[in-house]
Design a protein around this nucleic acid. Sequence first.
DNA 1: ATTTGCGGTAAGTTTTTTGATACTATGTAC
DNA 2: GTACATAGTATCAAAAAACTTACCGCAAAT
Lengths: 127, 127
Amino acid sequence: MKEMMSYEEFLSRVKDGIVTEAGNCPVTPGLSLFQGKWTDQILYVLCTCDSIRFGELKRNLPGITNTMLTATLKDLELKGIVHREQFNEIPPHVEYSFTEKGRDLYPIFYAMMNWGYKYEKDFYGEK
Amino acid sequence: MKEMMSYEEFLSRVKDGIVTEAGNCPVTPGLSLFQGKWTDQILYVLCTCDSIRFGELKRNLPGITNTMLTATLKDLELKGIVHREQFNEIPPHVEYSFTEKGRDLYPIFYAMMNWGYKYEKDFYGEK
DNA sequence: ATTTGCGGTAAGTTTTTTGATACTATGTAC
DNA sequence: GTACATAGTATCAAAAAACTTACCGCAAAT
């Protein structure tokens, strides 16, 4: 298990442009996850439960269509963020949950939450 | 200055669905920032310097057009993330930098970096 | 006299993303 | 025999995002 770079080290090193040993940008993979109209909302709903069925997920995302939910989940599954488990009963159903890789996104959501608390008024407006 | 929720508290409370006192989702504002093809890349470049000129920003974003760079910067300025300062010399130039609200995004990038270090192989592939 | 660098804007086109609608299979309950 | 619930798929249309191209004014350098 490798030592994590401290936040202080991050702050001082980001000015020089941080790259991994392999020469990659370590921020890009995380950023690329949050593209798409529904992806982030789906990820956040998955945060709030251990596992969830297709239909329940849909009810939690007002306005989403089958097409988009299916496509986005398939994409997240491909990326290894989401685990899909199919139960071949009658009627059949499917459960979606985070993989370890998905659960490792929690610190990102936590950081976003703190930012959101500080600036929610800018976003939602004053009461 | 309000106490920040600890990460442990976040983990336990997220299962119930976290809302602010005003009844808002505190994660949505942060998430909404990372939409758009170029936004996140621009934000990350801004992390790496105190301030940067339009042209230099453009050279740091291979493939971006004037149209998109202008539009995205204007959007970020409107959201209060980016500060624009115009120098009316000849030739005139403009400098862009983070506002405090923008600098407060650093913890999000830090969290993304840690995730990226762990999973970069999945994203970039093995050497 | 033309080009260069600066930071853009305007209009129109292409590409990508998203949405609407109808449809699939299965067994159970009515 | 018809409707229901499940988790989707296929096809096409619409909307949104991104891109292309041409252009602006100004002064200095070539």
